[in-house]
Computed example of a mutant assay.
Amino acid sequence: MPLDIVEVVRDMDRLARATWDRVMIGDIAGLKFREDSITDELLFALMRKHPQLAVRRLNQSEEKTAGADWEWWIGSWSLGWFRLKIQAKRVHGKKYRELDHRGDIDAGHEFQYQTLIAGCQGESTYPFHVFFNGWAQDRFRESFVSDHIHRCGPLDQELWGCAVMSSYSVVDLHLGSRGTEWTERSFVPRYMPASLPWSRLFTLACTNAVADNLKAYRAHYATMSSEQILDDLRMAAILLDGAGRGEISGVDGSGALNWARQTLTSTPLVTRLPGYAHKTLAAHRYFLETGDFAEGNPNFLIGPEDALTGRLPDVLLLLDLDLDLDEIDRPR
């Protein structure tokens, strides 16, 4: 059974709703869930449901020089890969206060998001922020309206439990806000209108969790080859990235799509994965062969010999579009 992108989108929306409730109720109860614990739970849940997603925890001491909480390598061994580098921030009160987190000072980066972007200058690599949200209805007076509501219709606010936006937009709103009081630069309502549910990283077709839309969306992908699906997914990332850079005014319309297609053809895929991604594959194979994780399994640990040079994230996911689970013997 190959990867079902529609089910990935559906599950990401489900997890976003659960995150909204977890953050909101946790805050009320005084349980301040950390970003890394939320991240671990989300990615583990996705991998358990979709084994084509391989996950491996890497050395947390590398986060300072990576600027990323996780990477998502999407593609296949036959076609090539593109990479999403993602930094996660959770809401605290009315602010994303960790946006003030310092970056790699040795590299001249004042803020962490500058470190993230600096590591995304290679081929087919795109930086994004994912915000973990959740609050009671009376926390804000502002009404949050996403910039895509005119083409999607109203979406449930809980889908912004995991909200994504280009890291270039974060720079513009946080660092480039001349004349804005510093205390307001991390104010949540500044960021929400420019963000989307995180599942939109995986779809050009903007769809709510409505059965008819999902059926049409599944039919759309059913006729496509792995190469076409890879192009479709990469165009979604290119559109969000381009809007964040200011190269296009929005992600909607034929003009934006034509720009994304041109950018797609001029941006080569990554053909060789770094060494730590191959270690992810080893962990992935262990999961497929055993059908489950074993706590403390050495395939999931990183040793001193793995202190690789370069910018490593805390978590790496490998999404293999060609992997067909029906072709793998798994234990009953």
Rank of each mutant, 00 (worst) to 15 (best):
E41M: 12
L99Y: 09
D100A: 13
G80R: 02
H101W: 01
E305F: 11
W70Q: 02
Q228F: 01
H278E: 15
D69H: 10
R102L: 13
E158D: 07
D329N: 04
A205Q: 12
V270H: 00
A118I: 00
L159I: 03
T183D: 15
I86L: 04
N59D: 13
D100Y: 11
R14I: 02
D314Y: 15
Q87K: 08
L269F: 07
C152W: 07
A243N: 11
A277K: 09
D4W: 02
G310V: 13
D21M: 03
P304I: 05
L201V: 08
A54R: 04
G75N: 00
E247M: 08
A107N: 06
R245A: 12
Y276E: 14
L53R: 00
F144W: 14
M1L: 10
I248P: 03
D212T: 11
A222K: 11
A237K: 04
E71Q: 08
Q52K: 02
E7C: 04
Y168H: 15
V6F: 00
D40P: 02
T183Q: 10
N297D: 15
F128H: 13
Q228G: 00
D40G: 10
H278V: 10
W70P: 05
S61G: 07
G153F: 04
L317H: 14
S76H: 09
E247A: 12
A294P: 01
A216L: 06
R218N: 05
T125H: 02
V9D: 07
A307Q: 14
L308V: 10
R14F: 05
R141F: 08
A260F: 01
K215E: 03
V55W: 05
S167L: 08
R234W: 02
G103Y: 02
A18C: 03
R14P: 00
V270T: 09
L42C: 12
T19K: 06
G296Y: 13
L269T: 04
S266R: 07
R218K: 12
S249M: 10
T19P: 09
G134H: 05
F144L: 07
W70H: 12
V210E: 12
D306W: 06
L3D: 06
L196S: 00
S254K: 05
W182C: 10
L257T: 02
A45S: 15
D147F: 14
Y96L: 12
K279E: 15
S199E: 06
K32D: 09
L323D: 09
D156Q: 06
D40S: 15
G246M: 14
G26P: 02
G250I: 05
D4H: 09
E142D: 13
A136W: 03
W77S: 08
Q228C: 02
I238R: 01
R311F: 15
K95R: 11
S186L: 08
V55S: 01
I86E: 04
R48N: 03
Y168W: 15
R190I: 06
R102N: 05
Q87L: 03
I86P: 04
